[in-house]
């Protein structure tokens, strides 16, 4: 099946840099359930849901779940400062040129894709803030696929 950003289709692959100079690709995360969250530090609902995402990443990491935050078009120092301020422990990638934003058709922040272990998109949440129970309920559904 062709990669696409609709529910039921394989998530499009993209490789992005991280604030600490490494790279990460969506394809490399196959085998893990992924919560792909598009955010920016200036976006109030994004800020409001960071703690919940952090907590879910910590609680479900051992069960094969990973939260991947994609910072939308901010510089590495700005993203890193925000991560320190919010004490974020989940992986953050930088979409400095907006390529991932365009590929995933992100028209509002935050936007969150829930991708199962086989790399298929199972749910999309436009807007926020998401609560921890809401993210947990979506992650539990992901793990059942």
């Amino acid at each position: 099946m062709q990669a696409s950003t609709r529910i039921g289709a394989p998530a499009p692959d993209i490789t992005l840099g991280t604030p600490d100079g490494k790279t990460i690709s969506v394809a490399s995360l196959k085998g893990r359930a992924v919560v792909l969250n598009f955010w920016a530090s200036w976006c109030p609902p994004c800020r409001a849901e960071m703690a919940a995402l952090n907590q879910v990443d910590r609680d479900y990491r051992a069960r094969g779940v990973m939260v991947l935050g994609i910072n939308q078009m901010e510089s590495a120092p700005v993203a890193a400062a925000f991560m320190r301020e919010q004490q974020l422990q989940f992986t953050v990638a930088l979409d400095t040129d907006g390529q991932a934003t365009r590929l995933y058709r992100v028209s509002a922040l935050p936007t969150t894709y829930f991708i199962d272990k086989t790399g298929v998109i199972r749910d999309i949440i436009y807007g926020g803030p998401m609560t921890r129970p809401l993210i947990e309920s979506k992650v539990t559904a992901l793990l059942s696929h």
Binding site: I125, R132, P133, L134, E136, S137, T140
Partner: peptide, 24 residues
């Protein structure tokens, strides 16, 4: 109905069931 089906997730933070969200 959603909270009932995902009771385990909402049990620790029952007040979050009142948050407006069309996905829950």
């Amino acid at each position: 109905g959603y909270v009932f089906l995902n009771f385990q997730a909402y049990a620790r933070e029952p007040l979050s069931a009142l948050m407006p969200s069309i996905t829950a």
